[in-house]
Computed example of a mutant assay.
Amino acid sequence: MSVQTRIWTPIDYHADGKQSDCLRLPHSTDLSAYGWIPIPLVCIKNGSGPTALLVAGNHGDEYEGQIALSNLAREIQAHQVSGRLLILPALNSPAVAAGRRVSPLDEGNLNRLFPGNAAGSPTEMIAHYVCEVLIPMADVVVDLHSGGRSLDYVVSTLVRPGRTVDEHEALLRLMRLFGAPIGFVSDGTGGGGLTTLAAAAQERGALALTTELGGGATLSQEGLSFAEAGLKRLLKDQGILRDIAIEPASSTRLMTVKGHSAFVYAHDRGIFEPAANIGDEVTKGQIAGRIHFPDLPAREPVTLFFESSGLVACRRVPSLTDRGDCLFKLMADIEAGSPGLALHA
């Protein structure tokens, strides 16, 4: 292998059968000079065919995907597969173990560090291995997310704008197949931009689908159910699980995120009182919420307003907020017959 990754695994990606082991992430500490940290990995291969890379635990405090992939890894046997499944339910395993968005080893936010660095911090090494070893094997990549500790999300799927009309249509088709109530197109404005796993996958020629399945560092049964059913529909469509029984997908409302005006941010430290819930339809100029200052009881609360109209995609969970915290994100409908809007969202 020409890639100078420091991560290794006993799993043979080219061998038929079901293998369950881990990636070894080198990490030298006071009490473990030559130690490594396990990143769980299941590889299920049977003959030739497409490869699906399924990831959860990119952020450690997002649980629906972790459970969905663990369930799938136990359920699927090699004889059911045509091609290959690569399943990583706890990709940023130090963050998963800590129940945190970022790694306790280096404060690394994995989904803001792609394409990574083979000689970098532990989190950068994970990103590099995914980019240079795993993604090049994959035809389709699914990265299962939720809102984590700070946000609650409507159950939804996300794709980046396709670089061509054909790629874009293929990505929209993945969202419809997954069958979440909402599917939205975003280039990462206000978030990860080009530093996410989805952006890295797209750059390397794989179709990439991201989910948002709930949030608040709790488990959404609705989000878990959509994840399990949606994954099976995608894998059946790809020809990887040809004979698995699936439920038909429900309709997906296609939406987009229209730049920075779709977000509401706190400009003061205080207690956030929201005036809208996820899934609400709001209009430009409508009150979004207030920031209160119990340490300065004579000070009037600051009132916040939505800068655009749309559906509330996510809302901040913790009431205590600081300047710069995201409080809301809105999505707007993609107009029928306007592929250009989606392509350049």
Rank of each mutant, 00 (worst) to 15 (best):
V96N: 08
D106H: 06
E124Q: 15
I44M: 03
V312E: 11
P297F: 14
E212W: 03
G279S: 12
N58H: 07
G49M: 06
S70E: 14
A227F: 03
Q202R: 12
P122K: 00
T196I: 02
L85W: 03
D322C: 07
A206Q: 00
I287T: 15
L86C: 02
L172A: 01
G270S: 06
P301T: 00
G183F: 11
R149V: 10
R149D: 12
D143H: 03
A199D: 05
R316K: 12
P294I: 12
E273A: 13
L41N: 03
H27C: 08
P38Q: 14
P115H: 07
G223Q: 07
P38R: 10
G183T: 04
V130L: 05
V140M: 11
R315W: 01
K236A: 06
A276P: 00
V142W: 06
Q19D: 09
Q286K: 11
N92R: 01
R163I: 05
G83C: 09
H145S: 02
I76D: 01
S28D: 11
I271D: 11
I271C: 09
G279A: 12
T5V: 10
L304W: 03
H128T: 00
T5L: 07
F305Q: 08
C326L: 13
A206Y: 07
A56E: 07
A73E: 01
N111Y: 05
P136K: 08
P274D: 14
S103A: 04
T157G: 09
L41C: 09
A208M: 10
F306A: 06
T283V: 13
L172E: 15
A245Y: 04
G47F: 07
T303N: 05
E212F: 01
I334H: 00
L54H: 08
I291L: 12
I76A: 06
Q286T: 03
P122Q: 00
K232L: 14
G108N: 05
D280G: 07
K236T: 05
A127F: 11
L311N: 02
S2G: 10
D21I: 09
K329R: 13
R233E: 02
Q19Y: 10
G57H: 06
Q4E: 15
I278K: 06
G108R: 01
E132R: 10
N92D: 13
A298G: 07
M137R: 15
P10M: 10
E335M: 04
S82Y: 00
N117F: 09
P10R: 09
S121V: 02
V155P: 04
P318T: 07
N277Q: 15
G192F: 04
G190T: 09
P136G: 12
Q4M: 11
E132W: 02
R160L: 13
A288D: 08
H14D: 15
H128V: 00
V96H: 08
D280V: 03
P136E: 00
S93W: 06
L194C: 04
P297M: 14
G270Q: 06
V257A: 12
E203R: 14
Y34R: 11
H14K: 09
A198M: 12
L207E: 04
S32G: 10
V154Q: 12
I44V: 15
N71V: 10
S32M: 12
S150F: 12
P115E: 14
A298H: 14
L41W: 02
A262W: 03
D243Q: 12
